[in-house]
Design a binder for these strands. Structure first.
Lengths: 226, 226
DNA sequence: TTAATTGGTTAACATTAATTTAACCCTGTC
DNA sequence: GACAGGGTTAAATTAATGTTAACCAATTAA
């Protein structure tokens, strides 16, 4: 069974809060609410939401401030923040992004759109599984945001499959991933490719990164060398 | 010292007009009133309000028409319009946003709520005005006010979609934006355009700015190169 | 008003890069 | 020396994007 997702909704208007809460609960989400930024931070500490839905416009501490604050706390690195913005506030798009928001939804809120969007956003979050979008292992840094890999300060460009494959291996350094597992994660269930395909991709990664990062365990699979 | 903010209140019921005016004046706002849309437009021309509080439901020319009309006049581009709506009107049904409204307040009006919200809205407006609407990334400056882009000191004109697209990418330089995300943000939910449309716009931007600013990540999306 | 211009979209085609395959190579093991 | 299990390479294939031109709608100029 799937674990219910936790969403914290923050708005100073109780009408909107109720309206959103109602719709989210109906959809099966666990919902907590807060009336302002300070409260939001407080509640987050115990509720540990997967996602925070944050109204940009709030008295006292507005959404952007709140977002910047929350994102500065390491414990919330994995928490997605989505803004609710009035349609005309383009300004908040930039300011919001710069404050570290992950997405935004424009008011007025239509229930269907809200739900669809949140589902999509959470699915994306799942997929990225990222936590922080940066994964650091030894002198290798893998950045999902920019789709770049760094060896020390050298920037290295990988193709998509190479990137996903490296990302998978690096997500658990030292662990051996079987070919089957790799196929399933990087290629998906339906895709059927020949075994040698993985080898070729591994080779290309080695070519670009150097030979010392990915190890072969004969008869089992590949691993990221610690 | 701060300059007093000017608010124009528009409602066909003089009771409500008086009530709101009283509360706003007490708070230190400069207030003008109008009984209908036509009058509102007339008064706005000389009074130049920072914000217009507009009842949705009015005889003759209703709030939505009025709003659309006012927003179509360039001199009022920076004027905020806030609707007064009856509680029963679902958020989803508020057509006001399509007409360009910036926010809304639900009736019945509680003085405290009214003041708090208006303060918040005006505070945001302040921020938008002072916070330069300029986004600077490397030698590119993007100015939302004038809809202009500068490369160094060269002025470059982009068409609307090109501008929005560049603006989105530049709001998180380095981050890769997927095509889906771009479509959603620049074109909106309902609009359905073909994939190649994005490419064409990207091409036009590159044509005008140069090839080095927007990068392609095959299979993923586009990014603004840092 | 019509004509001209601009912006946005699409379709068709070209180009490029990513991905996969196939063929062959190497190394160790039994 | 013949598997088994990968490694390597280049060629073939496919997918993704780039490019151009044409079309239409909206706007502006004449």
């Amino acid at each position: 069974m799937e674990i219910a997702r936790k969403i914290l909704v923050v708005d100073d208007e109780s009408d909107i809060l109720d309206f959103i809460t109602y719709n989210l609960k109906k959809e099966g989400y666990l919902v907590a609410t807060a009336f302002n930024g300070a409260q939001a931070i407080e509640v987050s500490k115990t509720f540990k939401p997967d996602l925070i839905l944050l109204d940009v416009m709030m008295p006292v501490m507005d959404g952007i401030e709140t977002c910047a604050h929350i994102k500065s706390l390491p414990e919330f690195a994995k928490t997605f923040i989505v803004f609710l913005t009035a349609r005309s506030e383009e300004y908040s798009e930039i300011a919001g992004f710069q404050a570290g928001a992950d997405d935004y939804i424009a008011k007025p809120i239509k229930p269907k759109v809200l739900i669809t969007r949140l589902n999509a956003i959470l699915r994306r979050k799942d997929k990225e599984e990222t936590a922080s979008t940066k994964l650091v292992v030894g002198d290798i840094t893998i950045d999902r945001d920019s789709f770049l890999v760094y060896r020390g300060s050298d920037k290295i460009q990988l193709a998509r499959k190479e990137f996903e494959l490296l990302f998978l291996l690096a997500s658990k350094p030292g662990k051996v991933f079987t070919r089957d597992f790799i196929l399933e994660k990087v290629w998906g269930d339906e895709v059927l490719v020949v075994d040698r395909t993985i080898d070729v991709h591994i080779r290309k990664i080695r070519e670009k990164l150097g030979d010392d990062y990915i190890g072969t365990v004969k008869g089992v699979g590949y691993k990221f060398e610690i």
